[in-house]
């Protein structure tokens, strides 16, 4: 009887989830894989015969550089988001329950302003004629403007400012669950602050850290609009290359192949991380 009751719910959930993913994820991605194996055609974008040309083109070391450059930017962004976000989520969990939801909303409200508009506001601050340089000069701390805009620094600031909530929100959802009694128990058993942190808090919040890292690192790899505006678009990022191939150069098979290889490379990276974790005995997610 109990089994009969729970079957419909389970079935409904699975049908909905699978249906959605098959229609809106699997089908489009099969098309992408198909496109990557076709021949570039100026009249129809793609046409037969099937070929591996697009993948061969990817062997150019230029694209490895682009990939590594993007990975570096994304990793730096993730690291800074984690360093800022982890203590933030922790501090947030210590605030009374009553105000937590309000504070969470206050955290995301700035992100509801269009990213382009916010980027222009950042430019107003960082530019040579900008507020920061003018302010520092008025204070007499610097004699001439410091170059901030159109540097790597500006790009990373921009990326952090775009992605910070994607680190904090998953972290918040695990910190919220961190039970005071566990911390007290650890303390009562004679563990110091550091030991409690390393042996109790970090393992308990690790799922949130991993989720946050994924939510920041992966999207950061593909972003290009905002980094272009703040960085002067002198460097190619993965997102630029793929978008240019689709729109400017109109080489769809190559764009599709590049996207597939990017996904595979990142999957491999995540997988390698998981393996290394297992070897040292920390059980990741």
């Amino acid at each position: 009887m109990r089994n009969l009751m729970q079957q419909p719910f389970r079935t409904a959930v699975l049908v909905l989830v699978w249906g959605w993913l098959l229609f809106l994820v699997l089908t489009p991605n099969l098309l992408v894989v198909g496109a990557s194996l076709m021949t570039r055609d100026p009249a129809t974008f793609i046409s037969l015969p099937l070929t591996l040309d697009a993948y061969r083109q990817l062997l150019n070391p230029l694209y490895l550089d682009v990939f590594l450059n993007s990975l570096y930017m994304a990793a730096m962004t993730t690291l800074i988001c984690l360093l800022v976000g982890y203590p933030f989520a922790w501090a947030l969990s210590k605030v009374g329950k009553r105000h937590q939801v309000l504070l969470i909303f206050l955290l995301v409200v700035p992100f509801w302003t269009n990213s382009l508009v916010r980027t222009y506001a950042l430019k107003l601050i960082l530019a040579t004629n900008g507020l920061l340089n003018n302010g520092l000069m008025a204070l007499g701390w610097i004699d001439e403007p410091v170059q901030l805009l159109y540097t790597e620094f500006a790009v990373i600031i921009g990326l952090v400012y775009l992605l910070l909530p994607f680190m904090i929100l998953p972290l918040y959802s695990v910190f919220e669950d961190l039970r005071e009694d566990l911390l007290r128990a650890s303390h009562d058993l004679g563990a110091g602050r550091l030991a409690t942190f390393v042996h109790v808090i970090v393992p308990l919040t690790l799922p949130g850290v991993l989720a946050g890292v994924m939510l920041v690192l992966l999207p950061a790899m593909g972003l290009f609009f905002v980094p272009d505006i703040l960085g002067g678009s002198r460097n190619l990022l993965v997102g630029n290359v793929i978008k240019n191939q689709f729109l400017d150069a109109r080489n769809w098979p190559f764009g599709a192949a590049a996207s597939i290889m990017l996904t595979l490379a990142m999957a491999l990276l995540m997988f390698a991380h998981k393996l290394s974790k297992r070897r040292i005995g920390e059980d990741g997610v």
Binding site: L62, V66, N69, R234, N235, L236, Q245, D248, A249, N251
Partner: peptide, 11 residues
């Protein structure tokens, strides 16, 4: 497109 990519990636 090829040269544009090379230019932007500094090669």
């Amino acid at each position: 497109a090829k040269y544009w990519e090379m230019l932007k990636s500094g090669q």
